[in-house]
């Protein structure tokens, strides 16, 4: 059996906790806290006005894609004040999902920069919030993603859709590792 550590990253309120929760086969670790008035003017809920809770440590869940392959999912917290946790979460990570909301694409830049800096392979999944109007190619341009980074649509609330994101990531990791083997 092979276990892969995967992180789910992205800006504040893009649906990281929702995604881990919807695919996990065990009860997910939940470190969500009620957003308090102390965060007014700091945690900007523009576009996600009905958001009432936020992750203050990390999410954890597990999904078996087959009898041989188990994914351990760590969802990072989105706000800048919790970024100090990311280094620890990234240790030993084989791949990452960057979740983006096209209404607030700029929130994804930090995650993408960090992953590129760490050299961690990743894919980008656009979470389909209502009102998303851009084509995926526009999203690719806006994020200046290299053509070999997979970019797909998803609905983080749906188990099947979230699972599809993870399968896309695993396929991407296998493709990268076979490319490396061929090259060497």
């Amino acid at each position: 059996m092979e276990g892969l550590k995967i992180v789910v990253v992205g800006g504040f309120g893009v649906g990281k906790t929702t995604m881990v929760r919807s695919v996990s086969e065990i009860r997910p670790l939940n470190t969500e806290e009620t957003m308090t008035q102390a965060g007014l003017g700091i945690d900007n809920t523009g576009g996600v006005a009905d958001k009432t809770t936020t992750t203050v440590a990390f999410d954890f869940g597990r999904i078996s894609l087959s009898e041989q392959l188990v994914l351990y999912l760590f969802g990072a917290p989105g706000q800048e004040r919790f970024w100090f946790l990311w280094d620890r979460l990234f240790a030993g990570t084989l791949g990452a999902v960057v979740l983006v909301d096209t209404r607030r694409l700029e929130d994804s830049w930090y995650a993408i920069d960090r992953l590129e800096h760490h050299g961690t392979p990743f894919i980008v999944a656009r979470n389909n919030f209502p009102g998303a109007q851009h084509g995926l190619e526009e999203v690719r341009d806006a994020l200046t993603l290299s053509p070999d980074v997979p970019l797909i649509d998803c609905d983080a609330r749906s188990r099947e859709s979230a699972k599809n994101v993870l399968i896309t990531l695993v396929n991407h990791l296998y493709a990268l590792s076979s490319a490396r083997e061929t090259a060497s």
């Binding site: 670790l29 939940n30 470190t31 969500e32 806290e33 203050v56 440590a57 917290p77 004040r81 919790f82 100090f84 946790l85």
Partner: peptide
């Protein structure tokens, strides 16, 4: 503040 909130959330879990 950020560290302590994380510790408490994990302790509650």
């Amino acid at each position: 503040a950020a560290i302590a909130a994380g510790v408490q959330a994990l302790s509650q879990s």
